[in-house]
Design a protein around this nucleic acid. Structure first.
Length: 460
RNA sequence: GGCCCGGUGGGAGAGAGGCUAUCCAGCGGAUUGCAAAUCCGUGUACAGCGGUUCGAAUCCGCUCCGGGCCUCCA
């Protein structure tokens, strides 16, 4: 079974074959840590987490790096505002980011390089670029000279002349060419800075990724992922830097980009005031439901985030966990592979909606299976498949009884007491009393399900 | 202005020349003490107009509408 991935470089799906099957490499642009992660930050984290799981299913050694941008003007601004060192800001929000992503079931990267730990590498790269004539110094800045790189624009499909036509920002006077971008800029005494051959300064944004990729993964990597907005300029600039440094070697073989998350048909932005923080969403929804809501659309499509979408994601999980709950006494066969149809869907450019459909197909079969062997196979496949998606790994009983989001909810022993009382009433055919108890529970958000082997319950 | 995506049934969302996507909601039935869950069945869906084809949501052209990027952005 072959994995097909849509490569932004060629704008089509291509068969994915790693350069070295013994060492598959993936790099994803991580967060700039200056505030809480919002739902738009969560999408690439979750999407590429599924890709990581899929890659690990196919190849035994996959190395995944995701950077932490811990030097940036937004961070500087936040630090200045609060009168603290940038490291306080970045340490705090990095921790929160990692916690929030863990709540969404995101596997931590093998390597999480920080920009500020790679200043010497950046300086070395700039020196190389200057020596080769791809960069120059001006006014305390170091700039990459875009016209020196013929392939500039190959990722975003922009000609160099088009870049000028659309420029909507005033061109800094020290630039040789309007499209040149900053590798290093001078810092004033009040700003964070590092000593360099060009004086005390700080790095521009694009350089860190090129340096950290080369240092930790090598000069050619298999996959580089990130949000669609990073195609230009960020990834285009990375290509320019890295290709020029490495003498034209292939820098990244597959460029993957996830679509944006909108909120109620509108782009998320501070000015509209519709920025949804993962941290807040987690206060009254499970991370698993948030994760599924993100995976319910294909990763390249724009995703419109709504409250209803989240409710639907929870219902979907209810259905899947309901099937697993039905099979709670069925043993799981260790080492079961994910379902073949499920895998085929994921292998087709990470088609998570289609993959989910195969899960529902399994759930339907699970709900009507009688044969022990069938039950075992279905349950095992459901769990193995869910693992690739990062869902369905919880105990179904826990899924249906979790009350962590509503502290006022009835506790389990009380619920069980009432259910017992109802059983007694039912046994003596006192259906009025039985229904009264059920209504009482329903009013508290507890739904009862009478089955062959007793009464099960769930929170609404 | 340049480049690039989309518009699918009440909602979400796949598919990409002929074959039920799926989930939620609705309706009918089975089951149930009644329910719930579950199962079975059920929907005038593919923005519009042309074209290609035996056959088009799917390919081509045009139109309309929405969105993204164009050196802050996931």
């Amino acid at each position: 079974m072959t994995l097909q991935l849509y490569n932004t470089l060629n704008r089509r799906k291509e068969k994915f074959v790693p350069v070295n099957p013994d060492r598959v490499t993936m790099y994803v642009c991580g967060p700039t840590v200056y505030s809480y992660a919002h739902i738009g930050n969560a999408r690439p984290a979750v999407v590429f987490d599924v890709l990581l799981r899929l890659l690990r299913h196919h190849w035994s050694n996959v190395i995944f790096a995701r950077n932490i941008t811990d030097i940036d003007d937004k961070i500087n601004a936040a630090a200045a505002e609060q009168g603290i060192d940038i490291s306080e800001i970045t340490a705090k929000y990095e921790k929160i980011y990692l916690e929030d992503m863990a709540s969404l079931g995101v596997i931590p990267p093998d390597i999480d390089p920080h920009a500020t730990d790679h200043i010497p590498e950046m300086i070395a790269m700039m020196e190389k670029l200057i020596a080769k004539g791809h960069a120059y110094t001006a006014d305390g800045h170091v700039l990459f000279h875009v016209p020196s790189f013929d392939d500039y624009g190959k990722l975003s499909k922009r000609g160099q002349d088009e870049l000028l036509a659309g420029a909507r920002v005033d061109v800094a006077p020290y630039k040789k060419d309007p499209s040149d971008f900053i590798l290093w800029k001078p810092s004033t005494p009040g700003l964070p800075g590092w000593d360099s051959p060009w004086g005390r300064g700080r790095p521009g944004w694009h350089l860190e990724c090129s340096c950290m990729i080369e240092k930790h993964l090598g000069s050619t990597i298999d996959i580089h992922g990130g949000g669609a907005d990073l195609v230009f300029p960020h990834h285009e600039n990375e290509i320019a830097q890295s290709t020029c440094v490495s003498e034209g070697e292939d820098f990244v073989r597959f460029w993957l980009h996830n679509g944006f998350v909108n909120v109620d048909r509108e782009k998320m932005s501070k000015s509209v005031g519709n920025v949804l923080l993962v941290h807040d969403l987690l206060k009254n929804t499970s991370g698993e439901a948030i994760r599924l809501a993100l995976l319910n659309a294909h990763y390249r499509q724009p995703l419109d985030w709504t409250d209803d979408g989240l409710v639907q994601a929870k219902r979907m999980l209810d259905r899947l966990y309901g099937a697993l709950r039905k099979l709670e006494d069925t043993e799981v066969t260790i080492g079961t592979k994910p379902n073949a149809n499920f895998l085929a869907a994921l292998n087709d450019d990470l088609n998570t909606p289609k993959a989910l459909a195969t899960l529902f197909d399994l759930a339907r079969k699970a709900n009507s299976a009688n044969d022990i062997a069938d039950k075992r196979r279905i349950k095992s496949e459901l769990i193995a498949s869910g693992q690739l998606l990062g869902i369905l790994q919880a105990d179904p009983e826990e899924w249906f009884s979790a009350k962590e989001y509503d502290e006022t909810a009835l506790d389990i022993s009380h619920i069980n007491k009432l259910i017992e009382a109802r059983q007694t009433a039912k046994a003596s055919k006192d259906y009025a009393e039985a229904d009264r108890i059920r209504n009482e529970l329903t009013a508290q958000g507890i739904l009862l399900e009478d089955g062959q082997d007793g009464t099960k319950w769930r929170r609404a």
